[in-house]
Simulated scan of single mutants.
Amino acid sequence: MIVDCAHYRDGSRQHEGPMPLEAAAARCTQGGFVWLGLFEPSPEEMERVQESFGLHELAVEDAQALHLRPKAEQYEDGTELIILRTARYDDEREEIDTGEISVFLAEHFVITVRQGIASELAGARGRLEGRPELLRTGSGSTLWAILDQVVDSYSPVVAELEHDIEQIEATVFSGTVAPTERIYFLRREATDFYRAVHPLLAVLGRRLQPSASSPTDLLPYLRDVHDHLLLVNEEVAAQRDLLTTVLEANIAVISVEQNKITLRQSAIMERLTIVATVFLPLSFVVGFFGQNFGWLVDHISGFAAFLSLSVVGLLLPCLALYVWLRQQRRRSV
C-alpha cells in the first residue's frame, strides 16, 4: 500500500497530497528526488515499483523478507538498499514489538518499504520537510531523517526494559524466587533488541564519510545519530549481562529454597526414624508376650510376675537402645 509519495526540489515539497506511482517515476528526471513510502506492499505492488524505478530483483526480494539484523547492500546501478530494524514497547503486554524498514536509496529517488506496526515514518517525513536546508542536500537527507527517528525510538524501549529488569532484580536480590520464565523472556527480548541495534553501528558507520549520499552538510547530523546509537548499544549490552547475572542469582535462590525444603524433610524423617526405632523393640516385646503359649499363661499368675515380665521387659530394650545411641553419637564426634 502506498502511504505517501512526494517530489522534493530546492528544499521543498513540489505538490500537496500523494502522487501516483507513474507520475512519481516521471518526476525523477525533473531534478530533486522522489520519496515513495510503502507499507506492507503486496508482491504485485512491489513488481510495479520495480518496473517503474528499475530496481534490482535481489533488492526487491530482500525488501519483502524479514531480517534479524540490519544490513546495507550496494548494487551496480548505484542504488543502495539499507535495511533497518525498528522497535516499540507495548505497555499492556510488556513486550517489544519489532518492525522493519527497507530503504532504496538512489540519487533521484528514495523508496521506503515498511513491515510491522512499529515502523511508522510520518514523523520523519514531517521533520525533514521542516528542514529545507537539509532537503537541499539531496536524497541522503531522507536516510538521516529515518535513522534519526529509528534510533530515537530505541530510547523508550531501553527505559522500559530497564524498568522490567529492576523489578526482577529487586525480587531476586531480596531473597525471593522470581519466575524463571519471565527472566528468560526478558533476556530473549534484550538479545533480539541487541541484534537490531548493534549491527546498525556498522551500517551507520559507513555513512560518516563524505559521499554522494552523505554530503558534508549532513555529516554532523549523522554523527549525532551515531553517538545516540552508541549509547543505546552500550545500555542494551549491559542489560543482557545484567539479566545473565540475575538469572544465575535466581537459580542460586531456588537452590537455597530447595535446600531448606530438603533440610526440613530430613528433620521430619529423623524424628520419624527415632520414633520407629523406639517402638520397634517395644512392638517385638509386646508381640512376643501377646502369644497364647501355655508356658506364658501358666507362669504369669500374679501382679508381680506381670510387672516383671511386661514393664521391665519394655524398659530394658529402651534402656539398651539409649545406651547404644549414645555410643554411636560419641564415635561420630
Rank of each mutant, 00 (worst) to 15 (best):
R9C: 07
M19I: 07
G31M: 01
G32W: 09
F39N: 09
E47S: 13
A59E: 10
V60F: 06
V60T: 12
D62L: 02
L68M: 02
R69K: 10
A72I: 15
E73G: 00
Q74V: 12
E76R: 15
G78T: 09
G78M: 05
D90H: 06
E95R: 14
I96E: 14
S102V: 04
V103P: 02
V110C: 03
G116E: 04
I117F: 04
S119T: 02
E120V: 14
A122N: 07
G123A: 02
E129H: 08
R131T: 13
S139H: 05
G140F: 02
L143A: 01
W144I: 01
D148R: 00
S153D: 11
S153L: 07
T171H: 10
V177H: 06
R188Q: 13
H198R: 12
L200S: 08
V203Y: 11
L208D: 04
P210Q: 06
P210N: 09
Y221R: 08
R223C: 01
D227S: 11
N233F: 03
N233L: 04
V236E: 00
A237P: 00
Q239D: 05
D241A: 13
A252K: 01
V256G: 01
I261F: 03
L263T: 12
R264N: 13
I268E: 09
V275K: 00
T277K: 02
L280K: 01
D298L: 04
D298N: 12
H299I: 05
F306E: 00
V311T: 09
L314M: 13
R329A: 15
